[in-house]
Design a protein around this nucleic acid. Structure first.
Lengths: 94, 94
DNA sequence: TAAAGTACTTTATTTTATAAACCTAATATT
DNA sequence: AATATTAGGTTTATAAAATAAAGTACTTTA
């Protein structure tokens, strides 16, 4: 039978975020906003969810005097993404 | 940039339904319920949404005295699924 | 003939996603 | 030097979606 799809990853915006992050070491808030085309509010909320699940880590730094939020995948997140991708392929018969 | 994911297909249950239907000529309500593991209520709602969008067609027949609901993909639905699968692959880098 | 079962549909509740409003600090403007 | 504007977010409110519970219209079985 088809595997269940991790609901945390099976969401349009969170999937975008994670698919950007897996191919990069790290990305900041503004870059993610640009890549995903989301509003900052929605992005903030979804980053929180990913962070609470331990899929990404979020580091708040300053660049000069401006705040800068850096995000990167954790190994847990990478593994979850891998499994999600595998499960999905069964649905798409890739 | 990544393509948008059709929200009608990007839902756990509707994706299950469609992924079953694309590989079959047709399937009835009970078979879909068994394959997807969903409740009948949820299945009924999601079939309605797919039908309203013109992605599937639903035929209500009788088998002897029992109602029997048959579902099959439309060409519109097949095309939508194809595009959805393509878009997704870009996210997964398949 | 009353109780239980089949095959659903409808309505209500919960969860999730999105958008709008707000906040704080820094820089620019008059 | 006060005031407005921008940057980089967060919080709260609204809208949409998913799910579960209850209901309907029969039919079968005891």
């Amino acid at each position: 039978m088809r595997k269940e799809l991790d609901p945390l990853l099976h969401s349009a915006l969170r999937l975008k975020i994670v698919s950007v992050l897996v191919s990069l070491e790290e990305a900041d808030f503004l870059f993610l906003q640009e890549q995903t085309g989301s509003t900052s509010g929605n992005l903030s909320v979804q980053l929180d969810k990913l962070a609470s699940a331990g899929y990404i880590e979020v580091e708040k730094t300053f660049q000069g005097k401006k705040p800068r939020t850096l995000c990167r995948m954790t190994s847990k997140g990478i593994e979850a993404f891998r499994q999600y991708a595998d499960a999905l392929k069964a649905y798409l018969n890739v």
